[in-house]
Each structure stands twice: as structure tokens, then as C-alpha cells.
């Protein structure tokens, strides 16, 4: 392995305590988000090396439990764990005891009995990670997306990506911007907010960092209540994006029945899709994020999806560094404690 770089040296001194679990962006707050972004920046540097692997979490076991299909999030977390030299235990739910009627609680307790340090959990039920966090004895629980509730690591990836683009435009290092660069930034989140865990996490993350968050979508796809959300609603997408710094497009989750909330996909696209005409209203500096997978022709026109302003591929690339940072911040502190002969309560 490579020798310690200044970036890694900086890692050795976490500034903000995080954990024991990451269930919601609210668990982090602005300080926690800033810390994740800071550490992720150091890992992004590691990733640019010829051998992008560090021994940081050697001997740790990370279990990846995806009770719902996912390609990019699962691969991203597993890659992140491997680059930190952790062992990855991946449960294929389709062929596991879950199919034989084993309960989530028994599955978790069985897996924890194998001596794991972290559970990366994706579940179709909102709140499942919060419940699992009550059942585990010592493992850290990381929410990799629960129902319509939250997808914290995705929102952190999005913040990281936005800062990266801002830094490039200013010719600065991303780390030098801190999180002050989000202050007053206008973020327009477009589409099926009601059923979107990405939207809930983004609202909390961007809101905590002082950005101005605007939601825009068919009324039937906005949540029943926005009481307590640090966000406003815009009626008209054309007006909203004309002043946007960032447009966050959400996927219309037709497979979850969201289709019945609007008269037709055609009508949805006409009102809330990022069409070739509409994209011209975007300010020149604005960027478009999308958590993937994209449904071209519905929430985004195919030609638009390939414009440089759309940073979806960059989000995927950044996903690994951000998730490395999360794993490091949640698990790395254990090593320090173990070294001192302490134990976590």
C-alpha cells in the first residue's frame, strides 16, 4: 500500500463525531455534513491513485443487505468498503433465508452474530433502518435508502458534486469552499417529491447548509404536508428554473404506482419534464443532478440528459468517495477506541 499522504494524515484526526448510525441526514446536521464532505475530498484523492486502496478498515466486516433491487448504490457502497480494505459480506436476499420466511429481525441478529461491524441496509419499508438500529448490539447501521423516507448517502453525494462544480467554476479547491458555498444557493427539486427518499434527504441536507430549497411538481406528487420542511413550493417550473443554481431531477416512480397520480406520462413530461425547450431557461452556470436511474423521455429529454450541465455520471463517480468517508467516519473511530483498549457502549 502507499505511504501516508497529507490527505490521509488529515483523516487521522476526525473533527466531528458521527454515529453510531446514519439513519437520516438529520443525524449529521450542518457540521456533520461538512465533515463528511471534508473526508470524502481526501478519499477522492486516494481514488485518483494508480492503486486506489487504503488499509484504513482492514479487519472490519461490512454487511450489505439490500432487500430491494439496487445496482448503483449497492456497488458504490461495496466498492467503497473494499477500497478501505474492509471485508464485504453481501446478502443476496433473493436466495436467502428471507425467502423462507425469516423475519428482518432474525436476519439482522443472525448476521450480527457473525461478527460484523456495519450493516448497509436498503429496504422498501420506511423506517426499517431505525428499527434495525434498535435491534443490533454493536454494529453501525447505514441507511442506503428506506421506502419513501430517506437516502442520506445520495444527498451527501449530491452536495459533494455541487461543491465540486462550484469550485471548478471558481478555480478553487473544493475543500477550501467549506460548506459556506451552499449559503443562498437556489436548489430546485423537481418531480415526484411525495415518493422520493432522495428528495427528503436532499431537503434536509441542502436546508441545513443554508441553501434555498424549492420544490416543484404536480400537486398530487407533493407530500400531504410540508410543515417543518425547510423548503418552498413553486407552482411553475419554467419560472423556478430560470433562477436555479441547481436543478435536482427526481425519477417518476411509475413502478410504484406514481403513474396514477398524474393523468399521463405525456402530461407529466409537458409540465415537469426537463425538455429541450425548458432547459434553455436554465442560467448558464446551473447544473442538473439526477440520482439515477434516469427515465429518458419522461423526466428528462434524451438530448438534455447528455448535456454537460447534467452531472449524473459525476455523481456516480463521487459516490464511492463519499461512501468511503461515511464508512470511515462511522467505523474508523472504533479502531481508535480499540487501540486504547476501550469499547463502544
Amino acid at each position: 500500500m502507499s505511504t501516508l499522504t497529507p490527505a490521509e494524515d488529515e483523516l487521522a484526526t476526525p473533527r466531528v463525531g458521527i454515529g453510531p448510525h446514519l439513519l437520516s441526514v438529520a443525524d449529521l446536521g450542518a457540521e456533520g455534513i461538512a465533515e463528511v464532505l471534508r473526508v470524502a475530498e481526501a478519499f477522492a484523492e486516494v481514488e485518483r491513485r494508480s492503486i486506489p486502496k487504503v488499509p484504513t478498515l482492514r479487519g472490519k466486516v461490512v454487511a450489505s443487505l439490500f432487500f430491494e433491487e439496487s445496482t448503483r448504490t449497492r456497488l458504490s457502497f461495496e466498492t467503497a468498503a473494499k477500497r478501505l480494505s474492509a471485508d464485504v459480506l453481501s446478502l443476496a436476499v433473493a436466495s436467502s433465508a428471507v425467502q423462507k420466511g425469516e423475519s428482518l429481525r432474525d436476519t439482522i441478529e443472525t448476521i450480527e452474530a457473525m461478527g460484523i461491524d456495519a450493516v448497509v441496509l436498503r429496504h422498501r419499508s420506511s423506517g426499517a433502518p431505525a428499527q434495525v438500529a434498535r435491534w443490533v448490539e454493536r454494529a453501525h447501521v447505514i441507511n442506503a435508502g428506506d421506502g419513501w423516507h430517506e437516502h442520506p448517502s445520495q444527498a451527501l453525494v449530491d452536495c459533494f458534486t455541487v461543491r465540486q462544480v462550484l469550485a471548478e467554476a471558481r478555480g478553487a479547491e473544493p475543500a477550501s469552499l467549506g460548506v459556506g458555498c451552499f449559503e443562498g444557493l437556489r436548489i430546485v427539486i423537481v418531480g415526484d417529491v411525495r415518493h422520493s427518499r432522495v428528495a427528503r434527504s436532499e431537503v434536509l441536507a441542502y436546508g441545513a447548509l443554508g441553501a434555498e430549497v424549492v420544490l416543484c411538481g404536480p400537486s398530487s406528487l407533493l407530500p400531504a404536508s410540508l410543515e417543518g420542511w425547510p423548503a418552498k413550493v413553486a407552482e411553475d417550473l419554467d419560472d423556478a428554473i430560470a433562477h436555479a443554481d441547481v436543478v435536482s431531477l427526481l425519477r417518476l416512480q411509475a413502478e410504484r404506482g406514481s403513474g396514477s397520480f398524474v393523468p399521463s406520462l405525456r402530461e407529466y413530461t409537458a409540465g415537469w419534464g426537463l425538455t429541450a425547450e425548458r432547459v434553455r431557461r436554465l442560467p448558464p452556470h446551473a447544473i442538473v443532478t439526477h440520482p439515477g436511474p434516469m427515465v429518458r423521455g419522461v423526466e428528462i429529454a434524451s438530448d438534455v440528459a447528455d448535456l454537460p450541465a447534467v452531472v449524473a455520471t459525476r455523481q456516480v463517480t463521487n459516490g464511492v468517495a463519499v461512501r468511503m468517508a461515511l464508512l470511515f467516519l462511522l467505523l474508523g473511530a472504533d479502531s481508535a477506541l480499540e487501540g486504547l483498549g476501550g469499547a463502544r457502549g
Partner: peptide, 15 residues
């Protein structure tokens, strides 16, 4: 209950 908390928690609400 369909309202502030169901919206926040991402749980389907019963109006």
C-alpha cells in the same frame, strides 16, 4: 395519519 408526520417520515398516510 396523513399529515405532517407521514410526510416527514415517508409513510403512506390514511387521510
Amino acid at each position: 395519519h396523513d399529515g405532517e408526520w407521514s410526510s416527514r417520515l415517508g409513510l403512506p398516510g390514511m387521510p
